[in-house]
Simulated scan of single mutants.
Amino acid sequence: MREPLGSLKGELDFPLAWGTSPIRDFQAWRRAARSTVEEHLLVDRQDGTPYAPEFVPGPQGGAYTGAYTRELVTLSLTRHERVRGALLTPHGTGPFPAVLLLHDHGSRFDIGKEKLVRPWYDDTRLASAQAWADQHFSGRFVGDELARRGYVVLCLDALGWGDRGPLTYDRQQALASNFYNLGSSLAGLMAREDARAAGFLAGLDRVDARRVAAVGFSMGAYRAWQTAALSDHIAAAASVGWMTGLKEMMVPGNNTLRGQSSYYMLHPGLPRFLDIPDVASIAAPRPMLFFNGGLDPLFPADGVRVAYDKLRAVWRSCRAEERLWLKAWPDLGHAFTHRMQDEVFAWLDAVL
């Protein structure tokens, strides 16, 4: 078993990567690389389903008096299902900059959007949401912090979480298998939905379409840089806790070998062309931020170094190295602490 696996892994040379590909014009390379990613999503590219949003205003006044308003929005990201999300809008005169906020995977499936936006609409989820914020975000709800700082915030449930769950580990694996049996992909569906969500957010009258960022932690970080690669609606992206080289991640004990949650980030056949940082590089030369914890057991330091070196080379070739912020936090594990958040917020203010 190990012999063919080792041989196949050794043959991964990512021939479409920028600098390796025979395509020398960067914009032509971006088009070719994005087209290759699109082909491997295995989900219809041109859905064309109207968003048809329905808005439900949240409470105002009393304990909810603040610098922003709250709404629930239900919309169609694909033709298959209506999806509910939290939408926060700063007080004042727009259009405002905006953040597509993408939640993590973690080990809690009863909450999705609630991991990042305080759930005013569901008291039963509030305790879970606060516990998650305490564990991973220094007690903060990142979405609420961004709204206070003047950003429109949209946070939707991915399939399996919150209103679209809970979908526990064994059921995730069964769902992914069913997608593959249908000639489709769970990871591809999530990628399509996130790109569509970016288009919806950018199209809101209250939003300045030139200033829309994607922000996420853990699986949400993966979703953030992936959405920037697939959607020109994203002007910048901040990804905290998900970046590595693929080969360096394929080691015993790593989560990517466990099945279960990894299927949300597994695009069949794509690594024959592009490494993980190669896909993220499709977003160049737009501003991008990548933070990783030096003590993070999910992403070994050698994999982070390989990925950062690749990303740095791409932005440098575009004469845009100043738009790329790469940082390892040597004293931190897999978390998005208040210190990291404050740097992300300051970076967003600067680039947007």
Rank of each mutant, 00 (worst) to 15 (best):
G303S: 08
L146P: 04
D134S: 13
D144S: 06
V153I: 13
N254F: 08
R148W: 03
A198Q: 04
W120I: 03
P271V: 11
A33F: 05
D205V: 03
A33I: 13
D205S: 15
E145D: 12
P57V: 05
L326T: 08
A28Y: 05
E248V: 04
R272Y: 13
E114G: 13
S239C: 15
E145L: 01
P15R: 05
W242D: 03
L88Y: 02
W315A: 12
R171F: 13
G10A: 13
L167N: 12
L101D: 02
G66C: 07
G106W: 10
F109R: 10
V304Y: 02
A301R: 15
H338M: 09
E81F: 08
C318T: 12
G183S: 07
H338Y: 09
H267G: 00
H80T: 10
A313W: 03
P166A: 09
G92L: 10
L274R: 03
L182V: 08
G259F: 10
V142M: 03
R30S: 05
G162D: 03
E193H: 01
L324G: 11
E71F: 12
L201H: 00
D349L: 03
V142F: 04
E343I: 06
Q130M: 06
P50F: 07
P285M: 01
V117H: 00
R312M: 13
A283T: 13
L126R: 14
L72M: 10
N292A: 10
F345T: 09
G216I: 05
I234C: 07
V73S: 11
Y264I: 04
L41G: 01
P4K: 08
A98F: 01
V251E: 07
V83E: 02
V279D: 01
R30G: 11
P95E: 07
F217W: 09
G294M: 05
A346I: 03
A237D: 06
F109P: 01
H91P: 00
A187Y: 01
L348H: 00
D110E: 14
R210E: 15
N181K: 09
R210Q: 14
T124G: 07
L295Q: 12
L289A: 04
L348Y: 03
L5G: 05
A131Q: 12
L167W: 04
L77C: 01
A335D: 12
L146V: 07
P287M: 14
A98M: 05
A32I: 12
A187L: 04
T65P: 00
A86L: 00
P119E: 08
S185W: 06
W325S: 11
S107F: 10
P97D: 03
T49E: 09
A147K: 00
